[in-house]
């Protein structure tokens, strides 16, 4: 009996590790933008291709004038979180904050986005009161669902999802799935905003961990309408990198749509869509 004690302890430890071991997202991640960089960062006014926005959002976007950014009160605004994860050109650093007593991760922080630094609380705390102020980065909480870190962000300031005036309101909720596959990190962004959209808008953002050569890789990111019947299954979220540069936006969209169909599962049919 005596000899079984340490074995049992080791077994329990392994099980514990296995049960609670999550994918490590921390580190430095390079941003992959150039394939759709024009659409992501310099989209023309009036180009709302694929966005499930309602008439109000379209009207507001069409009324938008970039000169507004020159007004005194807007000269220091950062990108709001609904755009910051997609639009930023540089690299990001994801760090873990752990409880010094228990060692458990209580938060992730993300620095280097196109907006303000983000904190993703992992300690089960609730979101603040509806009367609490909103910020550019919002208030984020995360929880693991399988291999995906699901991050819910509320308390976001009024902002935008495109650089051509397509708005988001302060009623928006942003849900992200961070999924890591080896050196690839995928951030699937769903924005639910009752003020601007009868449906969801949908975005993809991927990044590669920085290789020794510090290379930047190609990967598309675009907003597309996501039919509500689809659900995202984290194990299906492998970012298939399109092999060749996309020279036209139309081709680009078709490729991304193809990728999305691969990634999505129709829960009613219990089969994967094929492309």
């Amino acid at each position: 009996m005596k000899t079984n004690g340490p074995l049992l302890l080791v077994a329990l430890s392994l099980m514990t590790c296995s049960a609670f071991a999550q994918v490590d997202l921390s580190g430095e991640w390079s941003n992959l933008t150039h394939e759709d960089v024009n659409h992501r960062q310099s989209v023309e006014i009036g180009d709302y291709t694929g966005l499930p926005i309602n008439e109000a959002a379209r009207f507001k976007a069409e009324s938008w004038d970039e000169a507004v950014l020159a007004t005194h009160e807007r000269q220091c605004i950062p990108h709001v979180v609904t755009y910051a994860m997609r639009g930023q050109p540089g690299n990001i650093r994801i760090s873990k904050i752990d409880d010094p007593d228990t060692g458990q991760i209580i938060a992730y922080t993300i620095h280097g986005t196109y907006g303000r630094p983000r904190t993703i609380w992992m300690d089960g705390r609730a979101h603040p009161s509806e009367y609490a102020p909103h910020t550019w980065s919002g208030f984020s909480t995360g929880k693991w669902e399988g291999n995906a870190l699901v991050v819910t962000t509320t308390h976001i300031k009024m902002g935008w999802i495109m650089r051509n005036g397509v708005p988001t309101s302060d009623q928006a909720t942003m849900t992200e799935h961070f999924i890591r596959h080896d050196r690839h990190l995928l951030d699937v962004i769903v924005i639910n905003d009752p003020s601007i959209s009868p449906s969801h808008s949908f975005g993809l953002r991927t990044g590669d961990s920085i290789s020794p050569e510090n290379r930047m890789h190609t990967v598309p990111a675009v907003l597309l309408k996501l039919p509500t019947r689809y659900r995202i299954r984290s194990e299906d979220m492998f970012p298939t990198i399109c092999p060749a540069p996309i020279h036209t936006y139309g081709t680009f969209l078709r490729n991304v749509e193809c990728r999305l169909k691969r990634l999505l599962v129709d829960p009613r049919l219990h089969i994967r869509n094929t492309c």
């Binding site: 705390r125 603040p128 009161s129 102020p133 910020t135």
Partner: peptide, 27 residues
């Protein structure tokens, strides 16, 4: 207390809203 205004730096694990951590959102 239902959370607090102000937006401290997120370089440390302080809430952007200085919110306490109740278990359920009070609505």
């Amino acid at each position: 207390l239902q959370g607090k205004a102000g937006t401290p730096s997120t370089s440390r694990p302080a809430s952007p809203l200085n919110a306490p951590a109740p278990k359920e959102r009070d609505r």
